[in-house]
Design a protein around this nucleic acid. Sequence first.
DNA 1: AACACGACCTGGTAGC
DNA 2: TGCTACCAGGTCGTGT
Length: 263
Amino acid sequence: MPELPEVEAVCRKLRRDLPGARIRRARLLRAAEPGLEKRLRNRRIEGVERRGKNVLIRLEGAGTLRVHLKMTGNLYVRPDGAGLPPTARAWFALDGGRRLVFDDPRALGRIELLSEPELERLCASLGPEPLSSAFSPEYLKEAARRSRQPVKLFLLDQGKIAGLGNIYAAEALHRAGIHPRRPANRLANQRLERLHGAIVAVLDLAVQSACNAYRGPGRYDSAETFPVAVYGREGLPCPACRRPIRRIVQAGRSTYYCPGCQR
DNA sequence: AACACGACCTGGTAGC
DNA sequence: TGCTACCAGGTCGTGT
C-alpha cells in the first residue's frame, strides 16, 4: 500500500485535475455508505490535501471527502471513455468528460464524508507530518522517550508519526543502523538524531521515486525506482555489508533488517 | 500500557 | 493442471 510517498504522489496528480471540478454523479459500490452518493451530487471540489496516508478532498459547503487507500487502493482521474477496471470500488463523474476512479483490488479502502469537527478529530489523532518542520529531532526524542515499544512498532504508530508504513520504517531503521526490536526509550539521543535524518531522507527520496514512477493507469511503482536496501530481501546480501538480510515478525508483520549493520 | 491476534478483503505465487 | 497455503505497502477492535 501506499505509504506516505505513494499517497503524496496520488495527491499531486489529483491536484492537477480536481480543484474547480464539479462532481456530477457519484457511484460508491462498496467503499462507502450508499447514502453518500446523493450528498455528493453537484458538489464543487475546492482542493486536495494529504494528512498521513489520508487523501482529503475538500468539497465546497459539504465537508471533506476522506479516502484511505489501505493496502491496494488507488485514486486517479481518467477520461470517461477510458473504461473502468473490474476492481473499481467507486467513481465520480466530473464535468469535462472525466471520471475520478477509486480502484482497490483488495477492497479494504474506505471513503467517507467528514464534517469539519470530524476532520479536526482525525488530524488531531495523527502525529506530525514527517516532512514538515513539526517533525524535529527534539520531537522524535521526546516521543521515543515515552515509549517502551520496539522502535519498529513505534515508527508504525500513526499517532506518533503520520505516514510511515512497513517498507519505509524498515528502510529508515537500516539507514540509521538501529535494530528493529530495540525499545524506543532505550535509544540514545545521538541515535535518535540519526534516525530522524534517516526517516526524512528515506521519505524525501521515496516521494521523488513515487512521483517519477508513474507508468500508466492506476499504478504506483515507487518500488521500481526506490533503492530498497532490506525490505522484501530476506537472504539477499545487505548492500552495505553483504551479510544476509533477515526477516522477523513483529505484531504480525514482516520486518526486514541487516544483523550486521543494525544493533 | 503494551502486545498479540483476528477481522476486514482479494489476488498472486510457491509448493506439492 | 489444479489445489492449498501463505503472503501482501493498513488499521481497528478485542483479549491477555
